[in-house]
Design a protein around this nucleic acid. Sequence first.
DNA 1: ACAAGATATATCGACTCCGAGGCAGAAAGC
DNA 2: GCTTTCTGCCTCGGAGTCGATATATCTTGT
Lengths: 184, 184
Amino acid sequence: MAILGFLRDFSLHGYDLKNRVASLAGHVRPVADGTLYPTIKKLEEAQCLTRRTAPGSVAAPRHMLEITQTGTDQLRRWLRDPEQGFITDDNKWYVLLAFLHHLENPREQALVLARRREFLDQPTQLFFDEHGAPIPPELLDSPFRKGLMQIHRSTNLTEIEWLDRQIGDLNRRAGFAVRQRGAE
Amino acid sequence: MAILGFLRDFSLHGYDLKNRVASLAGHVRPVADGTLYPTIKKLEEAQCLTRRTAPGSVAAPRHMLEITQTGTDQLRRWLRDPEQGFITDDNKWYVLLAFLHHLENPREQALVLARRREFLDQPTQLFFDEHGAPIPPELLDSPFRKGLMQIHRSTNLTEIEWLDRQIGDLNRRAGFAVRQRGAE
DNA sequence: ACAAGATATATCGACTCCGAGGCAGAAAGC
DNA sequence: GCTTTCTGCCTCGGAGTCGATATATCTTGT
């Protein structure tokens, strides 16, 4: 998804792509060559991108990669209806967020944000005692577990506030667009 | 690591373990049976835990798992000197934090927190233009990328504050313990 | 003249992990 | 009596990922 998302911005070659993916997700979990190049090949076989050999600006020749219509469609499908892991796993969610603007309909964008919002709304119970009874944060003996839950709550609240603002904005914009079309 | 960490709290059987791991990490990325049971077997072979068959309280018989001294040592080694991924990947970091209290020396605990603190201190540059020049958040056209960076900054600050407080506490405690021993 | 390092692409074997499925006993609903 | 559901353990195949390795070009420093 990150590959197609970046290519949607502008066409790139593998090496550049590698650096961009590394700075986005790789900050957290670097992407190996052995993962990137086979994936590019697979996307090419699936006709999601095309390849043009161009002289290297600095050294060896590059393969310029460009996204196709098929690739754009595929990217939009992934963004519109992401697997649950992209909603629940912070790392994946941030990657999704980084490319959500490629989904052009504000209503669809709002729906994706709403899924994340719904997930964050679920109360999380992380720790249990011997008998499986939940332990409230204030009774935890480990300061690290206490901090873990504090940070978790605080960061969730920050994100929820942002999500609510965004969802409101997007729906207003969608409503406005509808009224515009209705007035024609 | 999560398996040994939970077993260090109290001995458990596989199914219970599965639920605890699921509520900790699995909230984000569920753990499959096909991952858990082979891992238990590997840990048993490495003599990190022992297995006793006990009648099931509700249904089928259980295998009660108990951590050994070897397992405790292994857990402490992992906690004391974690791989870089446990520092940089939020999901893994939270798992580490959940069991850091099993590392009993406050000075060692503080050192691990300091590694995380140092990682969070590095400025993160996520997005670049066609020519590879960094794009500052206020110039980003995508509201989602803007929000991504806002949330990232805000949650980092929250965690850094907590880390600084904890590191201070731990070092004070370590210093106090040393003075206590020195006074004997 | 030569080595080192960045640029640039690609493959292979080893490893991990997951999903699907199987096996089995007990309780609960129809 | 029958199926479903929950508990509880385990295995296998396939997918995906990584680290190591190979190759080639150009620049820069010595």
